[in-house]
Amino acid sequence: MKDRFACARREALFGVALFVGYFLWWYGFGYGLGSGDPENYTYVFGLPAWFFWSCVAGFVLFSAVTWFVVSFFFTDIPLDDEGEVDPRA
């Protein structure tokens, strides 16, 4: 059986990468577009552009990327130790 913990570690790193990636998107658009005077805001679908790109588009995009990463990079592994019994259990 291959190392299940190596797989768990790899997927944990994917999780962290997704977490950081979302942060950059969310923070970048939020403050990048939202820091000026509200008088000069542009709007998308009636919402301030910073809010639309950071929160609405960010949510949709992040969900899609998560689906993609989980479907193509996460592996199925057994969770039970086959044939092994913990002596103290």
Binding site: R4, F5, C7, A8, E11, A12, F14, G15, V16, L18, F19, Y22, F23, W26, G58, F59, F62, T66, F74, I77, L79
Partner: peptide, 14 residues
């Protein structure tokens, strides 16, 4: 938003 991904992928399998 990304906390479910983070928590479940870091803790989940281990």
């Amino acid at each position: 938003l990304p906390t479910a991904v983070l928590t479940l992928s870091v803790l989940g399998k281990k």
